[in-house]
């Protein structure tokens, strides 16, 4: 029985770590890879969630609402890059101010359109039994979703020609141009991919985290900290950090309270940043 309890704690912690990772991967691309501090990242998550909610309410099956949410957030991301980010590469504080303003605009728009409280969609009902305990199936499914997302982004960025162009444009922009890469177009696509990943997160997490205008805030702080702690090898680093910090916080929370879990998260983050100011992956010899 003790063993069963331990197994459920581990599984549900792994699933919360995965939820954190799902919300973080888009930021790992936009902030970790491109170095753009997008304070509106959480709002892209929110836009993804509302898009999925709206089309589901219109009668589209939930599973189909996810790609629609990705498409919508990618388009909005591309427009934001074109109008705002594009002019601010390399200007950290200006980017922060601009995207902060953008996040307020998106938040208020959501309040105006949807109000502050919206109904969730019912969680797809299935559960998994562990001994005498029973766990909701959908959150556990997120472990697989997080892994799939991670593999997808890794393959996209390392195996596709677009991915190589994207990394080249980010690492040495002028040289990327000098070998024929239209780096401004490539950067727009990369930012848009990052926003699309946030939209995907918002949509796929909708059964667990209901859409509200302020839902972005809940994720964005932990997501940013995860990417900062991860450091330059952004994808692998974020996965390990999300697993360690998110999982650790969740284990702590299940034995004590969720407040202690959060304290664990922030204390360990502070400790890691003190030990590794450039992120845990600063000295890793890996591409992503």
């Amino acid at each position: 029985m003790e063993l069963d309890f331990l197994a459920t704690v581990l599984l549900s912690s792994l699933s919360s770590a995965s939820i954190l990772l799902i919300a973080t991967i888009g930021l790992a691309v936009v902030f970790g890879l491109m170095g753009v501090i997008n304070l509106a990242h959480g709002e892209f998550l929110m836009i993804g969630a509302y898009t999925a909610l709206t089309v589901t309410q219109a009668g589209v099956p939930y599973i189909l609402s996810i790609p629609i949410a990705v498409a919508v957030t990618m388009v909005i991301g591309a427009i934001v890059e074109l109008l705002i980010i594009n002019r601010l590469y390399g200007r950290l504080f200006d980017t922060m101010l601009a995207t902060w303003g953008l996040s307020i605009v998106f938040y208020q728009l959501a309040v105006l359109i949807f109000g502050t409280v919206t109904p969730g969609i019912g969680m797809p009902q299935f559960s998994i039994a562990v001994g005498e305990y029973s766990l909701a199936g959908y959150p556990l499914l997120m472990i697989g979703v997080a892994a799939a997302m991670l593999i997808f982004v890794y393959l996209l960025m390392t195996k596709s020609v677009y991915g190589m162009k994207a990394r080249a444009s980010i690492q040495v922009p002028h040289m990327a141009q000098a070998i024929g890469i239209e780096s401004s177009r490539t950067n727009m696509l990369t930012f848009s991919v990052g926003c699309g990943l946030a939209g995907f997160a918002g949509a796929v997490l909708l059964p667990i985290v209901p859409a509200t205008p302020s839902m972005g805030f809940a994720f964005v702080i932990k997501a940013f900290l995860t990417v900062v702690v991860a450091g330059p090898v952004t994808l692998t680093g974020s996965a390990i950090t999300a697993l360690g910090l998110g999982g650790g916080a969740s284990v702590t929370a299940s034995f004590m309270t969720s407040v202690v879990g959060d304290v664990f998260f922030f204390v360990i983050t502070a400790l890691l940043l003190w030990l590794y100011p450039m992120g845990i992956s600063a000295k890793w010899r890996r591409k992503l």
Binding site: M164, R167, A168, Q171, H174, M175, I179, G180, I181, K287
Partner: peptide, 19 residues
């Protein structure tokens, strides 16, 4: 100005594929 976090192969491949 090689692309530092790309492998030797990728540095060459991206230049070829782009063109």
């Amino acid at each position: 100005f090689v692309f530092p976090r790309m492998t030797v192969i990728e540095n060459i491949a991206v230049a070829a594929a782009t063109n």
